[in-house]
């Protein structure tokens, strides 16, 4: 009984911190891409398997998707939907990065800064999977603190 009560106290707090953290990460990731869609288009083109006709649309929509999802998570607005989109994006990114890694394609991740010379490694994939797990915990949360509409 005591253990259950203790869990009730810390779990929403952890979920709240994860929610805000995921939101901030996503906003930071979006800002650079929103400013220079042409540059982000090149990053998108470096990823294999995407239909060429859709690449410009993807390059335009993804940064804003990240931004609004990030804001929604940080403020706790439509938290479940935002967390679902967050997981969807992180899952897709992880798969795309893993595919390129497995195929020996060296590329800029383009995850946060497009000017970054960060080389794509297993850690990049694991980091995105870590974000996915964080988003999943937020998605499954019954409630979080400091939210507009939880």
């Amino acid at each position: 009984m005591k253990r259950s009560s203790s869990k009730k106290n810390w779990l929403p707090l952890v979920q709240t911190l994860l929610r805000v953290g995921c939101g901030v990460v996503l906003i930071l990731a979006a800002v650079d891409k929103i400013g220079d869609p042409a540059k982000f288009l090149k990053v998108v083109e470096n990823y294999h398997g995407l239909p060429a006709d859709l690449m410009p649309l993807i390059a335009v929509v993804i940064p804003w998707m990240e931004f609004f999802t990030g804001v929604a998570l940080a403020l706790g607005y439509k938290r479940r939907g935002a967390a679902f989109l967050f997981c969807l994006m992180m899952g897709t990114y992880s798969l795309a990065l893993a595919w390129n890694l497995a195929n020996g394609v060296e590329m800029n991740c383009g995850c946060f800064s497009m000017d970054s010379t960060e080389k794509l490694t297993v850690w990049t994939v694991l980091r995105d999977l870590g974000f996915f797990l964080g988003g999943w915990i937020v998605l499954c949360a019954e409630r979080t603190y400091a939210a507009i509409t939880d």
Partner: peptide, 17 residues
């Protein structure tokens, strides 16, 4: 989750375009 995600997706897509 699905309904909220759909609303966010549509809004973000329209706004972006």
């Amino acid at each position: 989750s699905l309904s909220e995600a759909w609303v966010l997706f549509v809004f973000a897509t329209f706004f972006a375009v």
